[in-house]
Structure formats: structure tokens, C-alpha cells
Simulated scan of single mutants.
Amino acid sequence: MRFKVEKVIANHKVVAHGGIFSSGIGNDSNLLDFSSNVNPLGFPSKVRDAFKNLSQISVYPDPNSNELRTYLQKYTAIPKNQIIVGNGATEIIYNYCNAFLRKQKVLIPIPTFGEYESAAKLNGAILYYFKTMNLNENLSEFQDMIPKKNCIFLCNPNNPTGILIKRKNMLKILESAHDKSTMIFLDECFIELVPAGNESVISYLKEFDNLFILRSLTKSFGLAGLRIGYGLGNKKMIEILQKIKIPWNVSGIAQKSSIKALSDKLHLPKTLNLVRNESKFLINSISKIKGFTCYNSDTNFILIKSKIKSNQVQDKLLKKNILIRNCKTFRGLDNNFIRIAVRTHKENIKLLEALREL
């Protein structure tokens, strides 16, 4: 039987990611995963309470995640009708592109998270790239490239570089895009894991109706296995996204777990303290190892340039039950870059010992 498939779908390439299943050796409990940038302390202890009443497994979940959105309203100070919840942040990326980017021009700074490009391409978008390792240093050039009446994607802090666009610079980009009637998809999934302070532009949603902000409980609250993300935008934008999302897209367990996580007021401060100390420790220590150069990072992961090919570093570390992210799959990077997550001090020491032995 022959299937008629659009060329863009037939030629689609799945984006590579980190995580234990990317290693090829499955869910090995002995594997120390530095490839996933999740909270190094894991999930808040309160999340366990969501699993005490397992009778909810037999009940269809709230299709609109109303209770969770109420909690997110308190957490973000953004009205409930301006919040959408997704099965992970990635679902929201794809729904956004499906709703708003049909054959639009899209500008993406690279290197960055690959799903923006993937989702935009699937909807026939015409992509343009801006190569930079630190957008703060190329701000005016980037502003000049912003297309009129189209869209730009930004990741802040950026994955995989770890660089944070300062709020004053982000506001310049927002103003330029607004003047050109261009939409901004701003991924702030790691911004809660920036120890230096809050540089989010959530409070500017009222001022910029072209702005959409993506957040995730995967990174900040360690809920990667439950798949929870949320988006913030103007009321009309959220109404459209609510219409096209699949029914019951977020499980009841995931919704309850997210509410419990958001109610824990101590988890993020503890995490930020760990990230602040361990990031400095890792950068200082790895920079002293011959053949490795660390990029300064504002968040819970570090990009490293390696004289040893990245696939070789990954293979050698896997033999020691340590998984790092090979960054050759990021557009704009080559086979000389790896990325590591900031983990606990004991785990970080194991990584350092392994790197020294390479």
C-alpha cells in the first residue's frame, strides 16, 4: 500500500537529546547521567503525596488542567486564562508552531535547543539562523535580522551554552520585534535555575502582546518523567492553543505532582545554592584539565570545548558508567563540544576523576 506523505514529513529528522536512554544501554541504575539538565536535587519530597491515592489512575484527568493552572496563576502572577499546560514543554513548542507558523519566516540564534527548528520545519516555516555563542555581545546585529510580521525563537538561558540574556537586552529585542509586528517565542525553561537572580520578562506580558513564554517543571522541579510544561501568552493566543491541543494531554498524576511541587517553597532555593557552588567548582576544576575549556554558564549546565572528539569522550566515559551530552548534533557546533549538567558534589567529583583519566 502506498501512502501519500508531504515531503516535509517524509524528510523529517528526529532531534537528538540526552538522557539515559540516549546511551544505548537502557535504564541502567548505575549510570551517572550528566547529559540531562534536570534539578540536581531531583523532585521535591512533597511530590510523593500525589502518589498516595492511586485510584485516580482509573479516572480521566481534567482536560484543561484547571486546578494546576490556578496554582500557576499564583506562582507566576499571570491570569489563569493566559496559561496553557502541556505534556512537557516540547508539546507546547509543536502546538505553537502548528497554530502560528504555517510557512512563516523564523529566525533562530544557534546553537540552541533543536526542537524549535524541528517543529517550525514540520509546518513549512522558512528558517534563518544567527550564529552566536553569546547574544548579549551581538545584540544590534540580531535586532537588524528580525523579520517583519514573522517569528523569532529565543532560549534564555540558552541551551547548550548556558548564557543568560540580561533583562535589559531582552527588552530591546522585545521592543524591536514588537515594532516589526513579529512574534517572540521565549523559552525560559532554565531561568528558575539561574543563581544570580531573576531576569525573567514574565511581568512584561501585558506590555508585549507578541510575546509567548515557555516554562517547564521538568528542569526546575525534576519532573522529567511526568512531562509537564506550561506556556504564558495573551488571552487570544492561549485560546487558540487550547483549541488545538489533544484532549487529556496531561495525566492526573502529573497535574497533582506539579501542584505539590509548586507548593514546596524550599526546593528551588536549595537547588540554586547547590548550582551556584557546584558550577563554580566544576568550571574551575575542569579548566585545569588539559584539553578542556569551559564556557561560563549562568545556569545548571556547562558547555565544554574538548580537544578530544566529543564522541570519543562520550564513549570513554560510558565505560566508566558516566553519560555526558555529545553536542555535535547541535546546529552551529562541531565534534569538539560536550555538555555536562551540574549535579551533587559527590557526583561531580566522580566526573572530574573520570575526565582526568582520559
Rank of each mutant, 00 (worst) to 15 (best):
G124V: 04
G124W: 07
A125D: 02
I126K: 14
I126Y: 08
L127C: 11
L127V: 02
L127F: 03
Y128E: 12
Y129T: 14
Y129M: 08
Y129S: 10
F130M: 04
F130Q: 06
F130D: 03
F130K: 01
K131M: 01
K131T: 06
T132V: 04
M133K: 15
M133R: 13
N134H: 11
N134P: 00
L135F: 04
L135N: 12
L135T: 09
L135K: 09
N136T: 11
N136E: 13
E137M: 10
E137L: 13
E137N: 11
E137R: 09
N138P: 02
N138I: 00
N138S: 12
L139G: 08
L139Q: 06
L139M: 10
S140P: 00
S140K: 10
S140D: 13
E141S: 15
F142Y: 12
F142S: 02
F142N: 07
F142P: 01
Q143G: 12
Q143N: 12
Q143H: 05
D144V: 13
M145G: 08
M145K: 15
M145R: 13
M145C: 15
I146F: 00
I146G: 03
P147C: 15
P147Q: 15
P147I: 09
K148V: 05
K148C: 01
K149L: 08
K149P: 00
K149I: 05
K149A: 12
K149N: 13
K149G: 07
N150W: 00
N150K: 06
C151F: 11
C151W: 02
C151V: 09
C151M: 11
I152G: 04
I152M: 01
I152H: 01
I152E: 00
F153S: 13
L154N: 12
C155P: 01
C155L: 06
N156A: 06
N156C: 05
P157W: 07
P157N: 08
N158K: 06
N158H: 07
N158I: 02
N159H: 11
P160N: 08
P160C: 10
P160E: 05
T161N: 07
G162E: 09
G162F: 14
G162I: 14
G162P: 00
I163S: 11
I163G: 09
I163P: 00
I163C: 10
I163R: 14
I163V: 15
L164I: 05
L164C: 06
I165P: 00
I165G: 03
I165Q: 01
I165Y: 00
I165V: 09
I165L: 13
K166T: 10
K166M: 10
K166V: 06
K166C: 05
R167L: 04
R167I: 02
K168G: 05
K168T: 10
N169C: 08
N169W: 00
M170K: 03
M170D: 03
L171K: 15
L171A: 10
L171N: 14
